[in-house]
Amino acid sequence: MKLLSLAISLLALPLSGWAECQLSASQQQVSYGRVSAAERQLAPDQQHSLPEKNIIINVLCDQPQRMRLITGSTLSGGDNFMLGQGGEMQIIAASAYVDDRPVQLALVQSADASPASAGQLQQAITPNQGLAFIDGSEVSGKTASVTLTVHSRLNQATISEKTTWRGNLNVKLETQ
């Protein structure tokens, strides 16, 4: 089993990895910019939704193999990806391709586990959960891609004049 890691931080993305497969992301950092004064004046018990962001994960291997993407985060709370102390990120994986063919995604709990669900066109992922590429059964290939859509929300009480929120998503590529 080969293991390759990619850390996607919503504010800093170090890339690592050359082996028999290369893992890359469409962008290394995501910035939401400033939150306007009008947005900060919402009721304190309401959540403020930030703009949706997309990150495309690409895998390139020198020979066909089974590929799984396992997610994690150093900033997680239970089943949520956190955004600072007062926010959270929901991550949806969709638009998956293996060798330029559209495939479905199935959730896996580890690199060696059987898929926990049937394949679907999109899957909501949580920390320490993985994705398998499915087309009736799990597929192998030389290339794969998947789009991760990040939906972020902040609790209004956490928004102040000068605050920086950090969140991260780690993606490990496991092949066989």
Rank of each mutant, 00 (worst) to 15 (best):
I134Y: 02
L121G: 13
Y97P: 06
L75F: 05
I159T: 00
A25V: 05
Q27C: 13
I70D: 05
T147H: 01
S95F: 10
K162V: 11
K162I: 13
L69P: 01
S31N: 03
G119R: 14
D112H: 05
S26Y: 03
K162M: 09
Q47G: 12
S137K: 12
G77A: 13
S24F: 10
A118R: 11
R68M: 03
A94Y: 04
S5R: 15
T158W: 04
L121F: 13
A157V: 00
T163Q: 10
I8Y: 15
T126N: 12
T147Q: 04
L83P: 08
G167A: 08
K172R: 06
P44M: 07
D62K: 14
Q104V: 14
C61I: 13
V103S: 03
V30M: 08
S160R: 01
I92F: 04
I125F: 00
P127M: 03
M67L: 01
T143I: 09
T74S: 13
D100F: 10
K162A: 12
G86A: 09
L173R: 08
R68S: 03
T74Q: 14
V150K: 02
A94Q: 03
D100H: 05
K53D: 15
N128F: 10
V103R: 02
N168K: 03
Q122C: 08
L83H: 01
A25L: 06
R153N: 08
M1R: 09
S110H: 01
A7E: 11
T71D: 12
F133L: 15
L50C: 14
S117F: 11
L11D: 09
L42S: 08
G86T: 00
P115H: 01
Q123I: 06
L4E: 07
E20K: 15
Q176L: 05
L42V: 00
V146C: 09
V146H: 03
T126C: 11
